[in-house]
Amino acid sequence: MATQAETQTTRRDFLYVATGAVAAVGVGAVAWPLINQLNPDASTLALATIRFNLDGIEVGQSVTILWRGLPVFVRHRTEEEIETARETPLSELKDPQTDAARVKEGHAEWLVMIANCTHLGCIPVGESGEYDGWFCPCHGSVYDTSGRIRRGPAPTNLVVPPYEFLTDSMIEIG
C-alpha cells in the first residue's frame, strides 16, 4: 500500500512539475518578444553604419555629419595641427592619450569625433579656445587639436567613434 501511494505521489509530482516547467517556458517565450520590441528596429539599425566620402573637404576644413542621431566632426587637419598634437607631452593632459591613438594609421590628417562635449553634451565650437582646437561655450571646456581635454569641467577627451577607412577617401562609421 505504502509503495503504491508513493508511486502515485511521484507520478503526480512529475506531472505537476512538467506542466509548471512548460508553463514557465511559455511565459518566457512570450516575454522575450515583448522586451525585444523595445530594441532599435530594422530601419534604425539600417542607419547604424554609415559611409561618408571625404572627397572635397579641404585641408583646414571640417564638417559635421549625423551618425546614429549624434553629430560627428570630421576634420581635415593641417600639418601644423598634427604637429602640435603630437608634440604635446602626455603629462600635460588631463586624460592622457597619444594623438596616434585618436586617428587611423596613415590617415593622421583626418580626425573623426563625436561632437558632444564630454561634460554635459553641448557641441563645442571649432578652431577656438587657447589650444586652437575646440571650445565649449556652455561651461568652458577647452580641447586641443586632437580633441583632447585640456582645461575646464569636461572629464575626458572627445569620443572617437568606431570607424575605418574603406578606401583613402571613404570611411565607414559604426
Binding site: R12, L15, A18, T19, V22, G26, A29
Partner: peptide, 16 residues
Amino acid sequence: LFLVLFAGLMYATKSR
C-alpha cells in the same frame, strides 16, 4: 506545437 503539448499536460493535470 507547444500549445498542443501544453494543453495535453494541462488536461492531465486538471484530470488528476
